[in-house]
């Protein structure tokens, strides 16, 4: 196997800002934005916020946009689905009809509500992806312990779980291969597939339980007690950048709310 290395990727200072931002502050900004956005029912606020989020992502981070689009695609489809169903199956059909097509009469009220829902999906997903694409899981866990005082028991469980993912995937492949030798996995049809998954899960989970227990022992043998820690080798600091970015998110939120309400 080839050894992989852990290092900070080469990025311009400006493009590093979102990646270097304190994950706890970033989480607070994202959650706060989602909560505030939920209060607005006009289509413009989420639209402005969505555009603003994309701009922040573009200016202050460096990510693979190909991957970003790939992850964004399902949300765009969901948004389109919301738009369609809200227009077609709306409960309210009062008010002036703005356009008609193939027997459907669409009122201004319906249209605005549909757009509002669709843009809301886009706004929520873009801000969540912003967090997911720029946050290192280890730094996130460390920050949860340091800033949000999360119990180390939970934070390290999260980290170990994260380490296990590639191992589980590898094991899944090994089991599938071994069972294919016995004639499994060649049948088609949904029912067979579901049954096959169950067969793979039993050995995989029994292996995972064993591994988890061993890891827990190893951690405890190294002095891990789950008590809050007093020192951190890698402190995750709060800096002026975090304050600035926090204000930027607040400003974006305020601006899109005011403009949205004004336009509606």
């Amino acid at each position: 196997m080839r050894i992989t290395w852990y290092h900070r990727k080469e990025r311009l200072i400006v493009q590093r800002i979102l990646h270097d931002m304190n994950p706890a502050v970033k989480l607070a900004a994202v959650t706060g934005s989602v909560l505030v956005l939920a209060l607005f029912f006009n289509p413009w606020t989420p639209l402005f916020f969505f555009i603003g989020t994309l701009m922040i992502q573009a200016c202050f981070s460096r990510i693979s946009w190909k991957r970003y689009v790939f992850f964004m695609l399902p949300f765009v489809i969901t948004a389109a689905g919301y738009l369609w169903t809200t227009v077609v199956f709306a409960a309210e059909t009062e008010g002036p009809v703005i356009w008609s097509w193939a027997g459907f009469d669409v009122t201004a009220e319906q249209w605005s509500r549909a757009l509002s829902l669709a843009f809301r999906v886009l706004a929520f997903s873009s801000v969540s992806l912003l967090f997911a694409f720029t946050t290192d899981p280890v730094k996130f866990a460390l920050s949860l312990m340091q800033q949000l005082k999360l119990s180390p028991k939970l934070a390290y469980s999260m980290l170990v779980g994260y380490q296990f993912l590639p191992l589980l995937r590898e094991e899944f492949t090994h089991i599938r291969q071994a069972q294919r030798l016995r004639g499994a996995g060649t049948e088609t049809g949904l029912l067979h597939r579901v049954r096959n998954i169950r067969r793979v899960l039993l050995p995989m989970l029994s292996g995972a339980v064993r591994k988890a227990e061993r890891t827990a022992f190893a951690m405890e043998a190294r002095g891990f007690t789950g008590e809050p820690r007093t020192v951190f080798f890698e402190p995750v600091p709060l800096t002026r950048i975090d304050a600035a970015m926090g204000m930027l998110f607040a400003a974006l939120l305020l601006l899109s709310s005011i403009c949205g309400v004004a336009l509606a």
Partner: peptide, 19 residues
């Protein structure tokens, strides 16, 4: 395969010392 909880060698050592 089952006695480490951190991604890198340095972080694993740091975990031990923090404990």
């Amino acid at each position: 395969d089952a006695q480490f909880c951190m991604p890198t060698v340095e972080q694993e050592l740091a975990f031990t010392l923090e404990n």
